[in-house]
Design a protein around this nucleic acid. Structure first.
Length: 602
RNA sequence: GGGGACGUGGUGUAGCGGUUAACAUACUGCCCUGUCAAGGCAGAGAUCGCGGGUUCGAACCCCGUCGUCCCCGCCA
């Protein structure tokens, strides 16, 4: 080894020890006769002191050193002189007095700062990703990700799970996202598909009797990117036999709780995790993946508003449309009349963007004696207002936002305004971790265009046992055994108990517009497998990238992926995707036909 | 497929019809023996993403294009 110690481990107890260290020059401070070098490696930073009098040779070399040079230092650990310790550094109480210093490799001036946390253009970051990844913040993220995966593997191994790899070259699936296709050379005109998830295979592993399977699996979906979505991503995929919904949820809840505490060093806001029914989540938070780091929620006031003199509310209430209120705590307190109007106009624009006709509001005065402000105050009697404020828990300075429309529109507005208020009031703390479960999803959503039911999850999802009879009578009311795990407003896991009973499976297919014949074409291998003794089973899949992002407190999934794609799906560093050689295409029996305006730039 | 924001020395920003294109930092050289965002002095570095247009004159206005990011659609 070219080093005896790393840059994060030396302490005052090591005083006098002879050491060899190597790493990158984080910063150099040249005082003339003495040069300080902050030497950095993956484990931390240690100050190196090079003195002209005691080590003239090393001092000469140190004066040539620049940021990001790779150097090796031989020297002695010593406690820093009185008053020169640096409390910002973990190793700040000691330093290494250099005897010899060698430049192992010089470095060009980096295109951006490695030693500062400054915003950098994404193009530059991605082009020099290897330098971006050298930044301590990124190293922290990537190491955290490793620890998450390691913890998961150990946790599941201890509980009898077996990690089994499944193919990357697999078969296209008709449902779900767009597939990435891979041409077959040996079978001209045939294509593999990269797996969107190992869903089918893990169920087959249950048929195969492994009972407890998991995999840290790479998955691929050819859809447009988002801040929390990449075309290739990593899932914790797992499946268990002889289990019910509670068993899978308990396992994952335990795993996530320990992961948060032991690996991320944070405390989940809720233990145990709250369980929200799908429609309750929508009614209260406007979303099936609510951010529960803050408590703002929509409160139904249809009964009170329906008795007011405000025609819109009265009419809507009569038509069965809800009136719900979001209370933005203290948001009106600091605002003058003009500022308040500007804020409410902005909020109304957002509401309209989500399909609302308008947005009514009341601003509670900071002083009890002043009048309630806002255009609809006059339509409510003093008693009605008192009842409203009581139900909402309203306090002086609060801004109350009234939403009334169809249930769906109110959901969309609730979600949008709730997020906005939280952002404005700084309620979404990236250091907070708030998990919750969402359960009781409807089995199906009505597809108006196709005049049929679409499965909410996938077609092997079992209804909750008591709703099985509804498949025959009222499929829209049937709830699936699906469970989603949500954290800080992101869906971080989702799964279900699967159908292992052929009779139930045969009821599902016609409902979703699948004939048994077509199902056999596409899922014949599955249906056949299920005829050979299938245990009741269920599982879950968790997006590791998203989970790591949330646990790291990062706002974007790219921050926890070593080599991510840009929003257009490109790798700027390696220039992928690229135009292949004609000979490669020929071997694959592929001819590329481009619209004239879409010629690739070589 | 659609909406929005951004693109100015290496990096981060300012400038928004006439400026010698400004500031910070990084970079280069010199000085400096207790710094830690070291400091001081001096210096180099930008045809303002690209193309076209309007104008006496464009970093600035208009159109197009490329790229990045955020969002809708899409996606479990």
């Amino acid at each position: 080894m070219l080093k005896t110690h790393n840059c994060g481990e030396l302490r005052p107890k090591d005083d006098g020890m002879q050491v060899v260290m190597a790493g990158w020059v984080h910063r150099r401070r040249d005082q003339g006769g003495v040069i300080f070098i902050d030497l950095r490696d993956r484990w931390g930073i240690t100050q190196i002191v090079v003195n002209q009098e005691t080590a003239p040779q090393a001092h000469q070399t140190a004066s040539e050193v620049r940021n990001e040079y790779v150097i090796q230092v031989k020297g002695v650990v010593r406690v820093r002189p009185e008053g020169t310790a640096n409390p910002e550094l973990e190793t700040g109480e000691i330093e290494v007095a250099a005897q010899e210093l060698e430049i192992l490799n010089r470095a060009k001036t980096p295109p951006f700062y490695i030693n500062k946390n400054e915003k950098i253009d994404e193009v530059v970051r991605m082009k020099y990703r290897y330098l971006d990844l050298r930044r301590p913040q990124m190293q922290r993220n990537i190491v955290l990700r490793h620890k998450i995966v390691k913890f998961i593997r150990d946790y599941l191994d201890e509980r009898g799970f077996v990690e089994i790899e499944t193919p990357i070259l697999f078969k296209t699936t008709p449902e779900g996202a767009r597939d990435f296709l891979v041409p077959s050379r040996l079978l001209p005109g045939h294509f593999y598909a990269l797996p969107q998830s190992p869903q089918q295979l893990k169920q087959l592993l249950m048929v195969a009797g492994y009972e407890r399977y998991f995999q840290i699996a790479r998955c691929f979906r050819d859809e447009d990117l988002r801040g929390d979505r990449q075309p290739e991503f990593t899932q914790l995929d797992l499946e268990m036999s002889f289990v019910e919904r509670e068993d899978v949820m308990d396992l994952i809840e335990g795993l996530m709780t320990e992961l948060t505490i032991k690996v991320a060093g944070k405390t989940p806001r809720f233990m145990p995790f709250p369980r929200l029914k799908y429609y309750d989540a929508l009614d209260r938070y406007g979303s099936d993946k609510p951010d529960l780091r803050y408590d703002i929620e929509a409160v139904d006031v249809t009964d009170i508003a329906g008795k007011s003199a405000f025609p819109v509310f009265v009419n809507n209430a009569a038509e069965g449309k809800p009136v719900r209120v979001l209370r933005a705590p203290g948001m009106a307190r600091e605002l003058s009349g003009t500022a308040l109007r500007r804020v409410t106009e902005e909020l109304e624009q957002m509401a309209k963007a989500e399909g609302a006709r308008g947005l009514a509001w009341m601003a509670l005065p900071a002083n009890e004696s002043d009048e309630v402000k806002g255009p609809i105050g006059k339509f409510f009697t003093v008693e009605q207002k008192a009842e409203l404020f009581e139900r909402l828990g309203a306090e002086p300075g609060d801004l109350l936002l009234f939403m009334s429309d169809t249930r769906e529109v109110v959901w969309a507005v609730t979600d949008r305004l709730r997020r906005h208020i939280a952002e404005r009031l700084g309620l979404a703390d990236p250091e907070q971790i708030a998990f919750c479960w969402v359960i009781d999803f409807p089995m199906f959503h009505w597809n108006e265009e196709e005049q049929r039911w679409d499965p909410s999850q996938h077609m092997f999802t079992l209804p909750v046992p008591e709703d099985i009879p509804l498949l025959d009578t009222d499929p829209g009311k049937a709830r699936g055994s699906q469970y989603d795990l949500v954290c800080n407003g992101y869906e971080v896991a989702g799964g279900s108990i699967r159908i292992h009973d052929r009779a139930i499976q045969e009821k599902i297919f016609p409902l979703i517009g699948q004939t048994m014949e077509r199902a056999r074409e596409q899922f014949g291998h599955m249906l056949e497998a299920f005829e050979y003794g299938t245990p009741p089973h269920g599982g879950i899949a968790s997006g590791i990238d998203r989970l790591a992002m949330v646990l790291a407190g990062e706002p974007n999934i790219r921050e926890v992926i070593a080599f991510p794609k840009t929003q257009s799906g490109a790798d700027i560093m390696a220039h992928a995707p690229s135009v292949p050689e004609p000979s490669q295409l020929e071997e694959l029996h592929i001819r590329v036909v481009l619209e004239p305006e879409k010629k690739p730039q070589p």
